[in-house]
Nucleic acid binder design. Structure first.
Lengths: 209, 209
DNA sequence: AAAGTATAGACCGAATCGGTTTATGATGCA
DNA sequence: TGCATCATAAACCGATTCGGTCTATACTTT
């Protein structure tokens, strides 16, 4: 039985506990300062089990990268609909995708952003390679084909876009600290926020729904 | 000559380099995982100099807490005006305060938030004591006496407030990564953002200025 | 009972930790 | 000039922690 199969053969619930612990510790501390001790403790298992399942710290790290990558790609493929052109509906869509990912692995986003900015020499090269391969701009996927014509005259759409990014970023940040369990409530908050903006930034003729 | 005086006697520019390096490393890693080696390297001095100036890692940490605390308090006392009751003017005011602080020590906010959430046993008790003393709610200072009557009917002011917090939080976060030097430009972005919201969320009779 | 498996804890050498001592060169003052 | 003080970096210290391995034990499966 080869390393990672051992991990795949334990109960899924336990797998998720370990994955979430590892995502959290790596996400918070970055590769170098994240210690296997911390991960094991957060997962409630002994350190030797981590090595038993994954071989090395490095292998665990790249296992998580692939896991999260597939998770996001999967969610996008499942949920994303290029037929939706409304700006706010697009934002809602991407929020839903992120929310679904966070529901499965709460620390996934924290991990992915830390991974994106990782600069530890020991893993930097491989990360650059991975990032280069998936260079299909998030921004492009998210906003290509979006209809910007519904905004009132004088509204700086680029600024709105930037603002929305800050909002979602700040929101994700605020949920990172307090253990947010109620994702539906969280989603409702973001949704209300978007509706408020839509209502006040769109021309009136587009506000029927 | 007592420890910290040695630090006060070196050129101010060098002091600031060291302070900023320490704020950055502590802010990023938290107390425990921040190493004096990293701080010294970021500051471009040898590790022994850090101990020469501050005695211990712990002393340096609390020196920074007091420094940043005084910095913020000073900025608030200098800039805050309870006569300003307009919601957005208040937000702008607090943004200006934060921006002024960031201009002096770019990593100050990062450090203060990490300090606020610090849970390392070695310093936790003293931090709790400090936080308890300054329990004059930020929120209260920021919004007591604010005039919320200018908003359009149906605008959920609480939601706006929450949104604004996310925006500033997300904005600060986005500046943390890329070395933002141009604070005036950054300020302009936040300012534009607030004006956009004000223009679209206030009743029309309040939009003269 | 034998053989294999999951697991925790002891353990390893190497690296890093916070912190100290030492060596060196500059500075100031006599 | 000579002596003392200082700033500074590098070498160094014991202790801790690191990533990773080994061992002992309890539990399954046969």
């Amino acid at each position: 039985m080869i390393l990672i199969d051992k991990f795949n053969n334990i109960p899924v619930e336990k797998q998720n506990t370990i994955i979430n612990a590892a995502l959290k510790v790596f996400g918070k501390n970055g590769y170098k300062k994240a210690s296997v001790n911390d991960i094991a403790e957060a997962a409630g298992i002994s350190k030797s089990m981590v090595f038993h399942y994954f071989g090395t710290k490095r292998d665990l790290y790249f296992y998580l990268i692939e896991l999260c990558g597939n998770l996001i790609v999967g969610e996008v493929q499942e949920k994303f609909d290029p037929g939706i052109t409304d700006f706010f509906d697009r934002i809602i869509l991407t929020s839903e995708i992120e929310m679904a990912a966070a529901k499965k692995y709460p620390a996934a986003m924290s991990f992915l952003t830390s991974f994106y900015l990782e600069d530890c020499e020991e893993v930097k090269a491989d990360i650059q390679a991975i990032l280069a391969k998936g260079e299909g701009d998030r921004q492009k996927i998210a906003f290509d084909g979006t209809d910007f014509s519904k905004f009132k005259e004088g509204v700086d759409v680029k600024l709105v876009l930037k603002m929305l990014m800050w909002i979602t970023d700040g929101f994700v940040n605020s949920t990172k600290n307090n253990e947010m369990q109620d994702y539906d409530k969280a989603y409702q908050e973001i949704f209300d926020c978007l509706m408020l903006l839509k209502k006040n930034l769109y021309k009136e003729e587009y506000l029927k729904d």
